[in-house]
Design a protein around this nucleic acid. Structure first.
Lengths: 148, 148
DNA sequence: GGATCATCATCAAAGCATTGATGACTGTCA
DNA sequence: TGACAGTCATCAATGCTTTGATGATGATCC
């Protein structure tokens, strides 16, 4: 199968380009992309648990634990035991975390804004739909292989 | 900016889904996705240098060095100094590497095949074009930020 | 010939991500 | 009350990726 026919490569390339741009965008705020994503979810869900945060960011709880450790060490978030639900650690933004998020968000949104402006409303919808169908096909193929 | 309007998330999600499926696909061959990609390029470019390999796979030379180290340690590739061009290490597939690649390639192609089949020819072209335009917009926005 | 430039390999540090396994806790159901 | 299932946090091992810095080598130009 020739490489230039593989649609996966186009998707991969787009994502890499996007990640590189976002990395550069949030770097002045002293954040990485996963850290920015975590703070973003946290801003709208104060006191959420680490596991729930991981689900929201679509990573494993272990990966989120590493991100949270780095954020905690640098004082951007704080974690405290849940009042009556023993095993859970509530996570919250600190003022410093809120500041960093605000800084990063402006530049990150500029990137998203650029994408949105490049495409018409109809094109945006279509891109979403095409990607969703790719997802569906991929998931189906993966499951077929898992069963074989 | 609401999260559900960010097209970047759709692209990101599609890529993650794809990566997860490919990871599962090449895992029975004892490979990771970057390792598979490296072997794939290597199969058609015997004796290529590590830096050139990195460019072909769109990663940094350092990242490629790690991948090559793991592949070399497991005997899937071998590296030897270039005959007359001193500083270059020629990299080649070993028979074991070729076997692993063949195994992984069948399953990886099945994933790509599933994507290609889900979409019509026109849709594939359109998806490519939309992604390319996203790339363009992202690159432009990133450059604008870099200059600011 | 010798300075300069581009390319290549590599060391180091930091961060993100995966799988697998373990222990602790809550709530439910018998 | 006691067993069970589900959720949560965490340790450990691997592997990929990035930036930054360093040294070696070959080719080009003066």
């Amino acid at each position: 199968m020739p490489a230039n026919e593989r649609l996966g490569l186009d998707i991969r390339r787009a994502e890499q380009e996007l990640m590189a741009a976002k990395r550069a965008a949030v770097e002045p705020a002293g954040l990485t992309v996963p850290q920015y994503a975590t703070l973003h979810v946290l801003a709208e869900n104060a006191g959420i648990s680490g596991a729930a945060l991981a689900r929201a960011c679509q990573v494993t709880p272990q990966a989120m634990a590493v991100v949270l450790k780095n954020l905690t060490d640098r004082g951007l978030v704080e974690r405290a035991p849940h009042p009556w639900h023993g095993n859970v650690l509530e996570t919250r933004l600190t003022p410093a975390g809120h500041t960093a998020l605000t800084l990063a968000d402006a530049r990150a949104c500029a990137i998203e804004h650029a994408i949105a402006e490049e495409l018409t409303e109809a094109e945006r919808t279509q891109l979403r739909e095409l990607l969703a169908r790719c997802n569906h096909a991929v998931r189906r193929a993966a499951q077929a292989q898992a069963e074989a």
